[in-house]
């Protein structure tokens, strides 16, 4: 099985460890991983900020980078959702039917990591060992747009040594929302405060999610408070082999 890694601009630039972990998991499971170098950004931030009509170059770029990939795997629920839910409609809006058909075909092969592991590969035990107390934040777009459902939790529960603690209101937004976090900073931080108090209530060592952008937001708040809880992307836990976090 071959798969192309769709790393996302955030993952590429700020959180390379997530991509590294994703590659490790996939290779451990016998997947041959490609990394198309022409990929940059899916345009989610521009799209949700009202610049959708300027996105044609990014949609084209994505299509060109991934058109030959048999499967496209990304460790980000929201970037997967951007491509799956919005690209075909965007392309059609630009009046480019060929591009629309192309991205529709590509979108059908885009998987968020946990979906790829459970649906395409049919595995739940990925051979990880992570002896720590972990809680799971159900990122909004992964949950409501591409419907990852229980896949991340099933993968986590199969990790050796792990103790998974349920997060109260796990599927309530952490308040990030891209530019929302700066345009509506007061609102966003009130939502973050709720999320963090729920995380602390679980007394976990680690909080995880299928999206590093939510975790960037949560981590920003946890570190400000010196809360002593670490954020780790789902991929990092699934790639772990027992070392301390």
């Amino acid at each position: 099985m071959r798969a192309a890694l769709f790393i996302t601009c955030l993952g590429d630039t700020l959180f390379p460890e997530v991509g590294v972990a994703t590659v490790r998991i996939l290779e451990r499971l016998g997947v041959e991983v490609d990394f198309p170098l022409e990929q940059t950004c899916c345009g989610q931030m521009h799209f949700s900020s009202g610049y959708g009509r300027d996105l044609l170059p990014l949609v084209r770029r994505f299509a060109a980078a991934f058109t030959d990939a048999p499967a496209i795997v990304t460790p980000s629920g929201s970037c997967a959702a951007m491509v799956v839910a919005h690209y075909p409609r965007l392309a059609r809006r630009f009046g480019d039917e060929r591009l629309a058909a192309e991205v529709e075909a590509i979108a059908a092969r885009v998987y968020e990591l946990s979906q790829f592991l459970t649906d395409a590969l049919g595995v739940e035990d990925v051979g990880a060992h992570f002896p720590h107390r972990v809680t799971y934040h159900a990122s909004c777009h992964a949950t409501r747009m591409i419907h990852v459902g229980g896949a991340p939790l099933r993968l986590l529960r199969a990790v050796r040594g792990i103790e998974v603690v349920e997060l109260p209101d796990a599927a309530t937004c952490c308040g990030f929302g891209g530019t929302f976090s700066v345009n509506n900073a007061a609102m966003s931080s009130a939502m973050l405060t709720d999320k963090i108090s729920h995380i602390l209530a679980t007394q976990s060592e680690v909080v995880t999610a299928p999206d590093r952008s939510c975790l960037m937001h949560i981590d920003g708040g946890l570190r400000r408070l010196n809360a002593g809880v670490r954020v780790m992307h789902l991929a990092e836990i699934l790639a772990a082999d027992g070392d301390a976090p």
Binding site: D12, L14, F35
Partner: peptide, 15 residues
Amino acid sequence: VRELPEIPQQTFREW
């Protein structure tokens, strides 16, 4: 209310 993320030494594509 939040710390900025650390900027890593190496991007994923460099790795």
